[in-house]
Design a binder for these strands. Structure first.
Lengths: 192, 192
DNA sequence: TCTCTGTGAGTGAGTGATTGCTCACTTTGC
DNA sequence: GCAAAGTGAGCAATCACTCACTCACAGAGA
């Protein structure tokens, strides 16, 4: 047999690139096959459908990222430290794997109906940490849904700004600024 | 003659609804014709192509919104007041015309390459106001691109949260909270 | 008042291109 | 020799768009 896992890796890699470049709808199965250097039929030895490929790429990396956020945050005691860790992880991820990051951002909207509100969800991770901080009195009581979306907005919108050249790379240089902005926006007293 | 402008209005109204519901790519010209109660060919009496329809809807409303933001902000003196006016206008717009607001958000990504960085652009409006505030010493010096995207993130991400049920409507109830969060995030000393 | 007529609005079956996907087949390597 | 991996022409479905045609109606002329 030839190395199937290597072929699979190539499909995944090229698919991410093309999806980000042309969008999911703008990428045909022929494009995918050609970019991966395989025949169109081979795609279907590895994935049941184009949609299954998109969903596999999204759900796998989305959950992995959520787990990494949880792991980083759990090593910190205070809310300020947890938040700083999460923001830093976001920035590091964007700088290290911009294609993957952008794919998760663009696929999110079309995949959102299938996303469950569990711990595999970065949004839920942030919201849980905020709820805990409120419980501990580290930040004022406030709707956790609003607070979580504000924090994500402070992260995602600058990321989009980076993609479209409105913000200068690398993203990581703004990690402290953004973390501080999040703390202030949530009304923390402990910010630097 | 029959009333062409009425037909055009119906096309625009139904197109917005369908584009938000199913996405632009997920809406066919047959869908559009059926929803508007006309034949498919009639679409092409009013628009050169499906893409022209999308672009017309986007560019018109995008620019109108930007002008409204500029008008509201120009009535205020201080940066804090301008920002509050902009945030309030955003929230009001979302509550009053959620379908149109959501269309502008979703179409932005596919229309972004065609968007010019002029005063018809809400992003540019916010960035200009921030630059002025820095020049006046109302907020600390900082990269305006980053600052503008942070403010927009504090507005757009909660709006997305509203769409997906993570935040409770109406949006306007959070206007003051968000405006204050923006001021704090930008390092203003004048926030309440 | 009544017809005639020019024209812009509206129609929908049809077209060619493209799409995601299939399957009978070949190649590869154990 | 056999099973897994790979192939690519071809299929059915769908798409945006076209075009020869009909319709509605305002104004002109009788």
């Amino acid at each position: 047999m030839r190395d199937a896992s290597e072929t699979r890796r190539k499909i995944q890699h090229e698919a991410l690139r093309l999806f980000v470049d042309r969008g999911v709808g703008g990428t045909t199965t022929r494009d995918l096959a050609q970019a991966a250097g395989i025949a169109e039929g081979t795609l279907y030895r590895h994935y049941e459908s184009k949609d299954a490929l998109v969903w596999d790429l999204f759900s796998t990396h989305y959950a992995t990222f959520a787990h990494r956020l949880t792991a980083r945050a759990s090593k910190c005691e205070t809310f300020a430290a947890k938040l700083a860790a999460i923001v830093a992880e976001f920035c590091r991820f964007f700088d290290a794997e911009p294609v993957l990051f952008r794919f998760l951002m663009l696929a999110q909207h079309q995949a959102l109906p299938r996303i469950t509100n569990d711990s595999d969800n970065p949004v839920e991770v942030v919201q849980t940490i905020i709820a805990t901080a409120i419980g501990r009195g580290e930040i004022p009581a406030q709707p956790t849904g609003l607070a979580a979306t504000m924090v994500l907005g402070l992260l995602l919108q600058p990321a989009i700004g980076l993609v479209y050249g409105r913000v200068e790379p690398p993203f990581s240089q703004y990690a402290e600024t953004i973390a501080t902005a999040c703390l202030k926006a949530l009304g923390s007293d402990h910010h630097a």
